[in-house]
Design a protein around this nucleic acid. Structure first.
Length: 109
DNA sequence: ATGTTGACACCGG
DNA sequence: TCCGGTGCCAACA
């Protein structure tokens, strides 16, 4: 995955690489994928379900978008319900309405 | 070209 | 800790 790869694709690949039970913030993914800001990551994920990237990602239906959350551990505002269920199902611990980042944050290795 | 709009982040009160 | 304001980047109208 080098510089020639489109940013959108690198972001999707980074998300797809997050192991079950682990999470990354939008900013983390942006940095890991060589992007500029977390906003870009949020934009790509928001489009991942519209068919925009169906031709670029093999199993887009199975993209673990729920493992990406805000820097403070709070969930994506529009999909928070489903996101919480999916994370709980993977054993992710919550502190109230936020994920315990210290315990689940993935560094890409 | 110019303003608006987000699945964001950081800082100060 | 909660809330606003401010900075950001790219897509869109």
């Amino acid at each position: 995955m080098d510089e020639s790869t489109p940013l959108d694709l690198r972001i999707l690949a980074a998300v797809a690489a997050i192991p079950p039970g682990r999470v990354m913030s939008y900013g983390d993914v942006a940095e890991y994928a060589g992007g500029k800001s977390g906003r870009t990551v949020g934009r790509v994920l928001s489009q991942s379900g519209t068919g925009r990237y169906d031709h670029l990602v093999d199993d887009i239906e199975n993209l673990p978008w729920h493992r990406v959350l805000r820097a403070d551990g709070s969930l994506a505002v529009h999909k928070d319900d489903e996101q919480r269920q999916r994370l709980l199902a993977e054993g992710v611990r919550f502190r109230g309405d936020r994920v315990d980042l210290a315990a689940h944050r993935w560094d890409g290795r």
